[in-house]
Simulated scan of single mutants.
Amino acid sequence: MIVSIRKAAMIAAMAGALLATACSKPSEEASEARQEFNIGWSIYAGWMPWPYAQQAGIVKKWADKYGIKINIVQVNDYVESVNQYTAGKLDGVTVANMDALTIPAAGGKDTSAIIVGDYSNGNDGVMLKGSGDLKAIKGKQVNLVELSVSHYLLARALNSVGMTMRDVKTVNTADADIVGAFATPDVQAAVAWNPQLLAMKEQPGAREVFSSADIPGEIVDLLVVDTGTIKANPKLGKALAGIWYETVALMQQQDEAGKKARAAMAKLAGATPEAFDKQLKTTYLYADPKEAVAATSSPDLVTTMTRVRDFSFSKGLFQNAESADAVGMAFPGGKTLGDPQNVTLRFDESYMQLAADGKL
């Protein structure tokens, strides 16, 4: 089974708050041209191209092209990987959009999302027992990892049928315990992500009533890097884009080479090839850089991040902020959201655009 990636954002935010004082917003002047970089990752279907690329020599190929060295570093715990990045121990990290906002960006670390890699297209779901109607969730207790993307998904699901979070009672349940909890008679509703979601679907009487496929493009997985570092070292961004698109193109192939690459990724993730392929089916990979640029430049991303930041602020994940506008975000075309004087999360399409233009 692939280890889960999205731990409670509350834990992450608390850790981020402790780190914030040590992680002042980097300035371009403070960053220097360097030759070696560390990029962190944790196990998730949409991020397995990174360790495979290292194993297959693709990382070295692109790093050598630009005269640099890139270390692809595994961190077993997802939140810990993001905290290490926030603390400056990693130059970049794989992270979901909500956590990029609530941990490093909200903590004051100027962060750039240079690769929009995929979105959850069914990897996250709302489960009910005994009914296939989402409205039947009203008044029930819902087990989930509170203040995580599961909590966000539940809020979006309820809104889709004219309800709010006040119509249910959430029960904080660790991702490691969610499958077992849902198997008990007392638990009638739950929200989870793969691989736990797949196991829950197999339980008698279980029905999925809403999933991330109903809100495509909202739970987005990114590669982010320190803004000062990438500005001082554009070769890093070019190499990372080259690595990503070469590797994803290979894993999309339906020939023997593609099958071998996916099997190797599955092994790195501790999964069988069959289980890994199931998770890929509910992960929409942006294999085409032109599509990734279009998604990053679309007004839909601003809408999504508005929803994400409003939800995060409502749950107290912006530390001591007085409004959801406290954390500024920048988007392609000069668009900003929130405080333009405090932009700490930037969606930078430039390296994906170089890949799309064949200029890497």
Score class of each variant (00 low, 15 high):
residue 141 Q to C: 00
residue 237 G to S: 09
residue 308 V to G: 00
residue 80 E to I: 10
residue 184 T to C: 06
residue 128 L to K: 02
residue 223 L to R: 07
residue 126 V to P: 02
residue 263 A to F: 15
residue 19 L to P: 11
residue 1 M to W: 06
residue 70 I to S: 00
residue 209 V to Q: 00
residue 333 G to R: 05
residue 296 T to Y: 11
residue 119 Y to S: 10
residue 276 F to Q: 07
residue 42 S to A: 11
residue 216 P to V: 03
residue 27 S to L: 12
residue 159 N to W: 12
residue 338 G to Y: 00
residue 277 D to T: 09
residue 124 D to V: 08
residue 84 Q to L: 13
residue 107 G to M: 09
residue 52 Y to M: 08
residue 171 V to G: 03
residue 30 A to C: 08
residue 9 A to W: 03
residue 317 L to P: 01
residue 27 S to N: 10
residue 347 F to T: 05
residue 69 K to R: 11
residue 329 M to Q: 14
residue 226 D to H: 05
residue 271 A to Y: 14
residue 278 K to M: 04
residue 263 A to M: 11
residue 302 V to T: 15
residue 7 K to W: 14
residue 289 P to T: 01
residue 276 F to S: 07
residue 195 P to H: 02
residue 267 K to D: 12
residue 177 D to V: 06
residue 232 A to K: 10
residue 216 P to G: 01
residue 196 Q to I: 08
residue 150 S to Q: 14
residue 274 E to R: 07
residue 179 V to E: 04
residue 126 V to E: 05
residue 243 I to A: 03
residue 165 M to E: 08
residue 283 T to G: 02
residue 251 M to S: 04
residue 186 D to C: 08
residue 194 N to C: 14
residue 257 A to I: 13
residue 354 L to M: 09
residue 40 G to N: 01
residue 89 K to I: 00
residue 168 V to L: 05
residue 47 W to N: 14
residue 205 G to S: 00
residue 303 T to C: 03
residue 295 A to T: 02
residue 272 T to N: 10
residue 115 I to C: 01
residue 170 T to W: 08
residue 191 V to C: 01
residue 344 T to W: 02
residue 155 A to G: 15
residue 353 Q to I: 04
residue 205 G to Y: 00
residue 246 E to I: 02
residue 348 D to G: 15
residue 149 V to S: 15
residue 317 L to A: 08
residue 69 K to G: 01
residue 202 E to W: 01
residue 117 G to F: 08
residue 287 A to N: 09
residue 194 N to E: 15
residue 142 V to E: 13
residue 346 R to N: 14
residue 199 A to V: 09
residue 46 G to A: 08
residue 87 A to T: 01
residue 123 N to T: 07
residue 66 Y to W: 11
residue 348 D to Y: 13
residue 174 A to L: 10
residue 57 G to N: 05
residue 143 N to Q: 11
residue 101 L to W: 03
residue 15 A to Q: 12
residue 85 Y to S: 05
residue 264 A to C: 07
residue 314 S to L: 03
residue 360 L to R: 08
residue 27 S to R: 08
residue 187 V to G: 11
residue 33 A to T: 12
residue 66 Y to I: 05
residue 236 L to C: 11
residue 204 P to D: 02
residue 157 A to T: 05
residue 5 I to R: 13
residue 231 K to A: 15
residue 327 V to T: 00
residue 120 S to I: 01
residue 156 R to K: 13
residue 281 K to I: 04
residue 133 D to P: 10
residue 130 G to F: 15
residue 222 L to F: 13
residue 173 T to Y: 05
residue 71 N to V: 02
residue 127 M to G: 02
residue 43 I to A: 12
residue 251 M to W: 07
residue 144 L to M: 09
residue 42 S to Q: 10
